[in-house]
Design a protein around this nucleic acid. Sequence first.
DNA 1: ATCCGTGCAAAGTATTTGCAACCTA
DNA 2: TAGGTTGCAAATACTTTGCACGGAT
Lengths: 149, 149
Amino acid sequence: MNNNFKISNIKEKFHQFGYKYTGQRQLVLDVLSAHLGSHLSSNDICELLKQKQINIGQSTVYRTLVMLEKMQIVQGTNFEDGFTRYELVNDNEEHTHHHLICTKCGSITDIKSDLLEDLEQYIVDNYDFMIKDHRLKFFGLCKNCKDKE
Amino acid sequence: MNNNFKISNIKEKFHQFGYKYTGQRQLVLDVLSAHLGSHLSSNDICELLKQKQINIGQSTVYRTLVMLEKMQIVQGTNFEDGFTRYELVNDNEEHTHHHLICTKCGSITDIKSDLLEDLEQYIVDNYDFMIKDHRLKFFGLCKNCKDKE
DNA sequence: ATCCGTGCAAAGTATTTGCAACCTA
DNA sequence: TAGGTTGCAAATACTTTGCACGGAT
C-alpha cells in the first residue's frame, strides 16, 4: 500500500508504543492528513475510503482512532451532534485549539490562537486545579448563515 | 404531588410553551434543584427518585430534559463520559459557565466567572462569527487528586 | 371530551468486544 | 513463526420512538 502520510518518525512512534504500522492505520492517517481542517467521524473516514474503492472495517477505524488519540497523533472532540470527530494534532500547539460551531449549517472552524492564559491563571490561583488541557467551543452563526438571517 | 421546586413563573413558563406542568416534570425539577452544583444524567435522576420510592419512566425523564433545555431551564453538557448531564441554568448568567473536570476522579466543578470577553471580541473581530453561547471545559487534576500524585 | 403526557417495550445509533482468520515483523 | 491486527457479527449503552392507556384542562 502507498505511504502518503508523511510525518517524521511516525513509524517509530508506533513502535515506541508497541504497535504495528499497518496498511489500514496508514490509510486512516492518509485520510486525516488529506482533510486537514476537517473534523471527521469514524464513519466519514470509512466513506471517504470507500470513494477510493478501499474498504476497511468500521471497528478497525474505531480502534485505530482510539490508538492514535492515545499516541496524541489525533484529537477527538464531541461536537454534541452524536459522534466523536477527529483531526490531526498540530505539533506546534501546546494546547488544544478552539472551535466555532455554526448552529445553522453545522460548519466547524478552527481558531488557532489560545488566549486562555489569563483564565487559566485565574483557575490555578482560585481553584487549586492542575490544568492539563481544555476544550472550548463557541456556538453561533457563521459568516454565511449570519448574513442570511 | 408536592411542589418543592420554587421558581417564580415556572408554571407560567410551561404554559407559554404550551406544555403542562405535570407531577413528573415537577419531580425532575425537584431533583435538579435539590442537587445544585451536580451534573445529573437521566439515569442519575431516575435513581435518585427511586431512592425516594418514586418511579417514573426513563423516557419521561429524557423527554422532560429535552423539553426543559428547550425552555432554557436546564443546560445539558456532554463531558465526554458517554452521557449528557444536566444542571439548572442560573438566571443571572448571561452565558454558560465553565467546568473543571478531574481526569482521575471524574469530579466536575463549576467556574462561575465568565472571563471570555476578550476572546469573544477577538473572534467577532477576526472571524465574523455571531457568538450565541460557548462551552469551555478544563481537563486536569482536582485539588485532591493533584495532592495524591 | 379532547388532547397532551406517561411508561413500557421496541427501535435506533454510535461504539465496543469476541473470535477466527490473517498478516506483519 | 508468533503475536499483534483485521473484520464480521454480536453485544453494549445511551437515547429516541410507537402506541395504548391515563390524566389534566
